[in-house]
C-alpha cells in the first residue's frame, strides 16, 4: 500500500504503472562520484524508487562543495561523502538499498564491480575516470550516463546503450587538460540540472520509455537557456581501443624490484615502497629539464604517471628536446601496471 501511495504520481502514468514501478525496484544503478552531479542524480533515483543504488567516491565533504552538492550540510564537512550521502538518501527513502564504496576507482575494480549493476552514472570530474568507465562498460556491455560541466554549460549523453556509440566515439583523444569546477568555478544549480537529466535517462532506460539520448550529445547553456543536440555515430576503431584496454595493460613479473623492465616514474609524489625499487627511476615531471641525463638511452624505458597523459607529453618533449628514442608510454598510468 505504501508502495502505491509513495509512487502514486508516477504509477498513474500509463507508460509506467505498477509494472514499471516494479522494474525500478529491481534495478541496480551505480553512481561514480558523489559530487554535484552524483548528489542530484542519486536524490532523484532514490526518490523514484530505484531498488539498489551504489555510491563510489574517495572524497571527504569540503565546505566549498556545499553550494551544489545538496546531500551535504555544514556539519558534514570532513566526513566521507559516501557515508553522509547514504544517510541522507536513506532518510529520503528507506526502501532503497544503498551500497557505499569509499575507494578510488581502478580499471580492475570497475571490471568486477560494474557486473553487479545494470547502469552506471558518471559523476566524475576528470577525463581519465571517464575513459576508465567507458572502457569497462564497453567490455561488460553496460550502458552509462555521461555528464560534464563547464561554468554555465553542461554536456549529457548515454554511451554504450544497445550497440550505440561510446565516449571514445565522441572524444577519441585525451590530450585535453582536466579543468575541474574547483579550478574554474561552476554555477551551483548546473550540476543539479545535469544530474537530474542523468537520472531521467536512467529512468527511461529502466522503464523502456521515450527515446534514450544515445548517439546524441546534448549541450545546455543555462545563461541563454539554449540547447543543441549533436548527432554522432559509433566508430568501431574507437570501440576496439576500449575493448583492447585489458590487453594493453603492462605486466611485470613479481615486483618493480625483480622485474625485467626499467620504469621512469614522473609523478611528484611516489609511495616509498616504489621509489626504493631498483627498476624504477623517479624524476618528477618538473625536474626532467635538468635531470634528463639520468635516464638511460641504451634500453627501453617504460614511462608512467598517474593516468598516462602527462607521461605521454613528457615522452614527446624528451624526444623532441633531447632526442630520446627508447621511451615507451604506459598508457593507462600506474594503475594499469599489474603485478
Amino acid at each position: 500500500m505504501d508502495l502505491f501511495e509513495r509512487y502514486s504520481r508516477q504509477i498513474q502514468l500509463s507508460e509506467i504503472g505498477i509494472t514499471g514501478q516494479e522494474k525500478l525496484a529491481r534495478a541496480k544503478v551505480l553512481i561514480i562520484g558523489v559530487g554535484g552531479l552524483g548528489c542530484s542524480a542519486a536524490q532523484h533515483l532514490v526518490a523514484s524508487g530505484v531498488g539498489t543504488i551504489g555510491l563510489l567516491d574517495y572524497d571527504l565533504v569540503d565546505r566549498s562543495n556545499l553550494n551544489r552538492q545538496i546531500l551535504y550540510t555544514g556539519t558534514d564537512v570532513g566526513k566521507r561523502k559516501v557515508e553522509v550521502a547514504q544517510q541522507a538518501l536513506h532518510q529520503l527513502n528507506e526502501q532503497v538499498n544503498i551500497n557505499t564504496y569509499f575507494e578510488q576507482l581502478t580499471f580492475d575494480r570497475a571490471m568486477s564491480l560494474f557486473t553487479e549493476y545494470d547502469i552506471i552514472v558518471d559523476g566524475t570530474d576528470n577525463f581519465q575516470t571517464k575513459y576508465l568507465i567507458n572502457d569497462a562498460c564497453v567490455i561488460l556491455d553496460t550502458p552509462w550516463i555521461y555528464a560534464s560541466l563547464y561554468k554555465y554549460q553542461g554536456q549529457l549523453s548515454v554511451f554504450n546503450y544497445q550497440e550505440g556509440p561510446s565516449y571514445r566515439c565522441l572524444y577519441p583523444e585525451i590530450n585535453a587538460k582536466n579543468i575541474s569546477c574547483e579550478e574554474i568555478g561552476v554555477l551551483g544549480v548546473l550540476p543539479g540540472i545535469l544530474g537530474t537529466l542523468q537520472a531521467t535517462e536512467v529512468l527511461k532506460i529502466i522503464l523502456q520509455i521515450g527515446e534514450v539520448l544515445s548517439g546524441k550529445l546534448l549541450l545546455l547553456d543555462v545563461l541563454t537557456m539554449q540547447k543543441q543536440r549533436i548527432s554522432f555515430s559509433r566508430n568501431e576503431d574507437q570501440v576496439n581501443i576500449a575493448k583492447n584496454r585489458e590487453q594493453a595493460k603492462e605486466t611485470i613479473d613479481g615486483s618493480f624490484n625483480t622485474c625485467d623492465k626499467i620504469f621512469l616514474d614522473i609523478r611528484d609524489l611516489v609511495d616509498a615502497s616504489i621509489s626504493q625499487d631498483k627498476n624504477v627511476i623517479h624524476i618528477p615531471l618538473k625536474q626532467l629539464n635538468h635531470r634528463h641525463s639520468e635516464i638511460p638511452r641504451d634500453k627501453p624505458i617504460h614511462v608512467y604517471c598517474q593516468s598516462g597523459i602527462r607521461s605521454r607529453e613528457a615522452i614527446e618533449w624528451l624526444s623532441e628536446q633531447y632526442g630520446f628514442q627508447n621511451l615507451i608510454n604506459v598508457n593507462g598510468g600506474i594503475q594499469s601496471i599489474s603485478r
Binding site: L149, Q155, C181
Partner: peptide
C-alpha cells in the same frame, strides 16, 4: 552532426565542441 570531412556549404552552422571535465 559530428564530422571533420567534407565541404562547407553556404548557410552551414559549425559548432566547436571541446570536451568538458567538471562534475
Amino acid at each position: 552532426v559530428l564530422q571533420r570531412e567534407g565541404i562547407i556549404q553556404h548557410g552551414d552552422e559549425i559548432a566547436f565542441l571541446p570536451p568538458y571535465a567538471g562534475g
